[in-house]
Design a protein around this nucleic acid. Structure first.
Length: 568
RNA sequence: GGGCCCGUAGUAUAGUUCGGAUAGUACAGGGGCCUCCGGAGCCCUUAACCCGGGUUCAAAUCCCGGCGGGCCCGCCA
């Protein structure tokens, strides 16, 4: 409804500007504290027409004729600003729309554009850790938003199975005695794998000969030796299975796992190299093949192959990206900030190969420990599994405090919902490029206004509706005139435009901010206005409003990948 | 040394794309609220744009120069 209001205001203002004898491209419309929509267009016109912004705003507003059938209530000029306000019809329509669309409310029309979004793509060397923990959460939230905004999205995890790291683990399985390994910390396959990885790196540091053994294993793999392939698959799958289990708790899943090796084995990496070799950008250096990208403003050469002709990670990534663009209109990657340079090089290589489109990148800063960066290899990590467990434990304590009468099973269920929600929200609410330092107390502080606050508001709405038992069908939404009621409706009307801008700008945290604001607005309403005790007609109208809020809160939480509990 | 990113109350953040109204919010601190349908709540209150120049009627926002932190800088992924 807000999008419709915005377009009505847009054309009305456009016409008025013309009628007043001005010309301008940007209408400078924005939401503001002073109005439902405000335009600062008068400022833009002032220098050109050499009049004061205030006079221009007055000129324009005199030409504004609000049509009969509209969502606009009135227009006010405040100094240089032109302010627009919604009318009763807008509010009534919003309520009806939410009730009609239900869980679809907020979704935008299908766009018929296909997106491949890649996220997480962690090295298959061990369990996911908190350092890169933002990746799956940012990625998954984006996927949910983009789908809601009408895109057809496929989510992919790119499996880096061709690295030396994986070869080192394969070597470890053959050469390390089981009893030489540290105790298995958690009964999950990824935690088993990482023990071999760490032990193998330890041994490599002491015995230089092992390095060449690992190189041999890797080269047998590249050549397609079937026995070696089996062993790689076993190790990598073990690792991925473990990671999948972790992500399941956060309600994160992938549509497709794309193995890096497939592009080497099917010859597409060779094809890419062949094409690049024919371009003027290619150079040989000590047998290695490099791309000179200075003409693209990238100072660092892109190393495509080693001296022995074997390919490197980013080279294979070119083939993967060509494949992605064959299957999608838009390609989005969620990556750590350490990938910036190589992604810039990749972008150039794709251009050289004649590709018109380029992938969109979301870079996030690592979550570091107070003492420094996390590392799987060194074992300096906080495992995501541990964080999730701890979140759940702390949530359980809170549930126990508030709802001791519930069954143990129910308390555990709620604790899981609250714990996972808190983790997701805590990560998504911050812009990806901001640095985060991980501290247990802060990450798991439920006192802050986070996911539990929003979940609680939803549970409350459900509770009221449950107590009311039946909701009158023939309610009159015009009765909802208290300021808290009007604010709540206006807030809910914003959801589609929030989804639109979040998807447009790939900014998942705007949804998080909106969710918190909506919950807050509902709490204010709840505090100020009685529902169940109101007289009948008003009661029905307010119950419908509560029902709308329940729907919108649930939809927003779903967008964030957070469960909306009916009680907690 | 070079490149990219970040710097907003005690702490954590929004606003920066595209310069406009009183810089929004949370936690912590101070003070209130059970006439209430769930107090994981509501209402007050204290407190901030890293520094220095410049552009502009107007700068947290744009430009230049510093300072502090993060990431990256050819055969790792």
């Amino acid at each position: 409804m807000f999008l419709k209001f915005e377009s009505e205001v847009g054309s009305l203002l456009q016409d008025a500007i013309k009628a007043a004898g001005y010309e301008v491209e940007m209408l400078c419309l924005e939401t503001s504290d002073y109005a439902d929509l405000a335009s600062s267009v008068a400022f833009k016109l002032a220098p050109k027409y050499e009049k004061s912004p205030k006079r221009i705003a007055e000129d324009i507003s005199r030409k504004i004729r609000i049509p009969k059938k509209t969502l606009i209530d009135r227009v006010e000029v405040k100094g240089p600003y032109i302010n627009f306000y919604v009318n009763r019809e807008f509010l009534n329509q919003t309520i009806l729309q939410i009730l009609k669309e239900g869980e679809r409310y907020g979704s935008l029309p299908k766009k018929r554009q296909r997106i491949i979004l890649e996220h997480t793509s962690a090295n298959p060397t061990g369990p996911l850790h908190v350092g890169r923990g933002r990746n799956p959460i940012i990625g998954d939230t984006l996927v949910r938003m983009l789908r809601c905004a009408g895109y057809d999205v496929e989510v992919q995890y790119y499996v880096n199975d061709m690295g030396k790291q994986v070869a080192a683990i394969v070597w470890g399985y053959d050469n390390v005695e089981r009893n030489a390994l540290p105790k298995l910390e958690r009964d999950k396959p990824d935690h088993d794998v990482v023990r071999y990885y760490r032990k193998a790196t330890e041994i490599i540091a002491e015995r230089p000969d092992v390095d060449s053994q690992i190189a041999q294993i890797l080269s047998r793999y590249e050549l397609g030796d079937s026995n070696t392939i089996e062993r790689f698959k076993r190790v990598v799958n073990k690792c991925i299975d473990g990671q999948k289990r972790t992500l399941e708790r956060l309600d994160i899943a992938f549509d497709r796992y794309v193995w890096e090796s497939q592009f080497v084995m099917d010859g597409s990496v060779d094809k890419v190299l062949g094409k690049l070799k024919k371009t003027k950008y290619i150079k040989q250096e000590d047998g290695a093949l490099v791309l000179d990208l200075t003409s693209f403003g990238v100072e660092k050469d892109f190393v495509l192959t080693r001296f022995d002709g074997t390919t490197l990670y980013t080279t294979r990534d070119i083939a993967y990206h060509l494949w992605k663009f064959d299957h999608a209109d838009i390609v989005i990657n969620v990556l750590g900030e350490d990938q910036k340079l190589s992604m810039e090089q990749l972008r150039c290589a794709l251009k050289i190969l004649g590709l018109r489109k380029e992938p969109k990148m979301i870079f996030y800063s690592f979550v570091s420990l107070p003492e420094g960066r996390m590392s799987t290899r060194k074992g300096v990590v906080v495992d995501l599994d541990d964080l999730l467990d701890e979140a759940c434990e702390r949530a359980y304590i809170e549930v126990q405090k508030r709802r001791p009468e519930l069954s143990e099973k129910e308390k555990r269920r709620i604790a899981e919902i609250v714990g996972m929600g808190a983790v997701r929200f805590d990560i998504i609410k911050v812009a990806p490029e901001k640095m985060m330092t991980f501290k247990w107390e802060e990450a798991l502080d439920f006192e802050k206004q986070g996911a539990p606050f929003i979940q609680y508001s939803h549970a409350r709405a459900c509770s009221i509706l449950k107590k009311a038992r039946k909701i009158g069908h023939g309610f009159d939404s015009s009765l909802l005139t208290a300021p808290e009621e009007v604010e709540l409706i206006k807030k809910m009307a914003l959801l589609p435009s929030i989804v639109d801008s979040a998807a447009q700008d790939l900014k998942p945290y705007v949804v998080a901010t909106y969710a918190r604001e909506l919950a807050e607005t509902f709490n204010q309403f709840y505090r100020a206005v009685p529902v169940l005790k109101a007289e009948e007609a008003l009661r029905d109208a307010r119950l419908s409003l509560v029902n709308c809020t329940r729907i919108v809160l649930a939809n927003v939480l779903n967008l964030l990948g957070i469960t909306a509990p009916e009680s907690m």
